[in-house]
Design a binder for these strands. Sequence first.
RNA 1: UGGGGCGUCGUCAAGCGGUAAGACACAGGAUUUUGGUUCCUGCAUUCGGAGGUUCGAAUCCUCCCGCCCCAGCCA
Length: 576
Amino acid sequence: MPDTRESAPVPGGAPSHFIRQIIAADVAAGKHGGRVVTRFPPEPNGYLHIGHAKSICLNFGVAAEFGGVTHLRFDDTDPSKESLEYVEAIQRDVRWLGFDWKDKLFFASDYFERLYGYAEQLIRAGKAYVDHLSAEEIREYRGTLTRPGRNSPYRDRPAAENLDLFRRMRAGEFRDGECVLRAKIDMASPNLVMRDPTLYRIRRTPHYRTGTDWCIYPMYDFAHCLSDMIEGITHSLCTLEFENNRELYDWVLAALDTPHRPRQIEFARLNLSRTVLSKRRLIELVEGGHVSGWDDPRMPTLSGLRRRGYTPEAIRDFCERIGVARADNRVDIALLEHCLREDLNRRAPRAMAVLRPLKVTIVNYPADRVEELPARNHPEDPAAGSRTVPFSRELWIERDDFREDPPPKFYRLAPGREVRLRYAYLIRCVEVVREAATGAVSELRCTYDPESRGGEAPDGRKVKATLHWVSAPHALEAEVRLYDHLFLKENPAEVEEGKSFTEALNPGSLEVLRGCRLEPALGAAAPGDRYQFERLGYFCADLKDHRPGTPVFNRTATLRDTWAKIEARGGAPPQR
RNA sequence: UGGGGCGUCGUCAAGCGGUAAGACACAGGAUUUUGGUUCCUGCAUUCGGAGGUUCGAAUCCUCCCGCCCCAGCCA
């Protein structure tokens, strides 16, 4: 007999997690004829974020592993908050993430008529009733965590009366809130969800898909399980907060004696350090003007991550690595960034850009001379090819790469020191020019070694540092946006009484630099193109604001910076 | 002091009665025309705690402690 517990590796060698194990066991046992059908069921009332990505990867991933399919179903049962804009944005994001629902696109609103039929069936079976208690009264009657609730005075109406009332609800004979349809379960249940939950409410709000066809709408607990059943979902994966609802999910399907019984399985939602993932807080960031919108590159939304320069591959890898379990968690955002760098390091072409320019004049280089020096587009990938970068007498280097009074372990440029300009020459700083008024360093005068073309001196002498640079007369000017974590706190959601989570916002999460200098090859960048600016980080041309003549780049991630770490450790204070 | 869950390294997370995987982070070192990459090395005598069962327990039992979820006509 086969071991149906299936603790052994699963097809594809993916790491084991409890949902994979359950599904593998079900498949092995021939449940549902060995079929696997999952679904991703967003409500179209907001944008998808990295937490949804976990669910999307889980649902599409696990179904694919077992040769199954995944439905994209919009859980659009509350017309007051939903819209087509969100439906479109969600589809765009799921597709971008790399998943394909084929022709399996569904809407709970398409099931309204069938759902209504099931509700009547429930009424006929004496398992649901129309209640005229007000919302406040229902709350009072529900009891508390420790005290049982009381039956509504309308609870024992005959089925025929309930049926008539429910039909009149549909016909629009009652005002919003005047009555609801409730399941008749147990007002004393220790599980509050089971204390005669509301199944239908009256809402005279036009629905973005069904218009004014309906004035009654099913609640999540009624619509979701039945939608799963209708679609033949085998494994209905959701987050832990729906655990209490599982009893009701099963109750509805059993009460209706449905032919197909999906199984709800809950897993822990993702929490990420230094950001927020709740819809409520994300909305507050957008509406409070703390970010520029849902796609602000600092947002953990998929549209924000996309604009920031994240790749779908990196996000999928991240979702695979964090695992799936039932324990509350807060994943270190450094893991997401690691996945990103790993992917980008492999595929981003290299280029040179100077963010905070400092002028360098090569005093012994002819003023009218320009050389085109070959540079590799990727140090480890010859297939990425090469390009040419112009070199001339006047250059820009990074201000951070020069120190008048270099601290220990700083081995970049300083008075009298020699360094290498990447792909170009060895240069030595012979003079520091200052602004008369402020005394600030305004220019460096250097000599170059004509024998070191390409960066290697014939005498074999070594140099400790290699700097990136851009030829001044050939440079493109650009705006570069430096992004950092949105929040300073590990868990921004944890706030003191009376304070807002927005107080933990990182004031330095965005720094806009203008007058940055790019090497000419970057002029070919199209919106969304990603590069590694050597020694700085990964950058992408902004999807919205980048124009060929006026380039705008977003910093996707910095490179790991060992020197910054040494410096921060207190060795030498930064001098700027 | 109702019910439902969850506690394994700083953070995730395997582990399914046979003697604590892996990843990130962190710390060293090697290579390097990116202080990047890559490569080595180190990093839980112990699994929330206490008892018990067993030749043997993170895994089974008992009690205790801590954290999360539920009182929408939201999902």
